[in-house]
Design a protein around this nucleic acid. Structure first.
Lengths: 202, 202
DNA sequence: TTAGTAACCGGACTACACCCCGCTTATTGG
DNA sequence: CCAATAAGCGGGGTGTAGTCCGGTTACTAA
């Protein structure tokens, strides 16, 4: 006999995460963060994490799918915090300033954010997969502001993608984590401003 | 007793590659190319390559350092061919056209090139390493043309880096290999043109 | 309260990247 | 042609990502 679809509280599609599973997820993320801080990201292994968390290896894989998934989860937490500043912080990063100014501010903030979390961001890169960062909030946000600043050029969506790549690419794949000192970020920030302002110039 | 430095023909620093080593390299690259074409890049393993080439595993690692190194070597051959077109092909891709036109042409050509070789390019990505592609020829070339088109903005070098990222990033990490149909390349090409022409506009 | 079920947990198992070190061979100077 | 030497070679060894499946446990409905 087919299981009767519960009529009461079917939120979303899946069943909703079980209580112990949620507890384990939180615990794993906490332990993972400790291990990254303590040993460095490249010394964090699935086995090690499982053991230190007092759980089985299978559990770790169920939660994060892949090794990169761990760092993706950690990075996501930071990303969410960043999002918050963008969506409801003070202008010009938050709403309330002209689009171009917001884009410039977003660029600088994003660069500083990425430099601060380079280790996590790069460790979250899953070779062979589409994109760990930038797919969600960043791209959406840039696209929105671009629509406002120069609707014609932004129409296809590729321009926004390229601008996000211009912003994140240098940190994510063209530079060593080590050689991203402040002056480099300042330079990147400055040329981002040039880029945005000239693109938006009618 | 210290070995006497041979005075005769010390070219470069190292001894010069031994004949058998060179032969093996060529053979390995050939076999690797076959295997990629036949099985797909993700099915190519170090052991498998060694066995099929009739060589020891250690040899393969000596030649390519890492798994990504194999694909890097394969990609490099294509890259060199591309380089040739840029350096000595007909304008506007080759020399003989104004800088901005060359940049636009370079963008389209580079995009088509990357789409054609996405599999190799992405497989050559070595997680944790600075940059597999774009470090050499592309960056240098864009920097050069940018110096010509707008010296002030190009001075710091970061703008060129960001433009290269804008060009290669979407293919290399923001898009699935599959979802890069012709229209997407056309769109990317078009927004690249917008990007370059507006940045270069005084 | 209780039976049923789906999700969860654990740890043994596989496959593969990469290391290591003793053996082999190309090269060169006599 | 021969000895000496440094580079190249091979394949067994290790650690880790990811899979599988039998046993367990939290939820649901009656």
């Amino acid at each position: 006999m087919l299981p009767v679809e519960p009529v009461g509280l079917s939120l979303g599609q899946p069943r909703e995460e079980r209580a112990d599973a949620a507890r384990n997820r939180a615990h794993l993320i906490e332990v993972a963060r400790e291990m990254v801080a303590e040993l460095g990201a490249d010394k964090v292994t699935m086995d090690g994490l499982a053991e230190r968390a007092g759980l089985g290896k299978g559990t770790v894989f169920r939660r994060f799918r892949t090794r990169a998934g761990i760092f993706h989860a950690l990075f996501d937490e930071e990303e969410r915090r960043f999002q918050q500043r963008v969506l409801s912080g003070p202008p010009p990063l938050g709403p309330g300033a002209p689009a171009v100014e917001r884009l410039v501010a977003f660029g600088r903030a994003r660069l500083e954010f990425l430099v601060e979390h380079t280790i996590l961001a790069r460790a979250a890169l899953d070779p062979g997969k589409p994109v760990p960062v930038g797919d969600g909030p960043s791209l959406f946000h840039v696209q929105m502001l671009l629509n406002e600043a120069c609707p014609e050029a932004a129409a296809s969506g590729t321009l926004a993608l390229q601008l996000v790549a211009a912003l994140e690419g240098p940190i994510l794949l063209y530079l060593q984590s080590a050689d991203a000192p402040s002056p480099m970020v300042d330079d990147l920030s400055a040329s981002w401003q040039v880029l945005v302002e000239r693109v938006a110039a009618s």
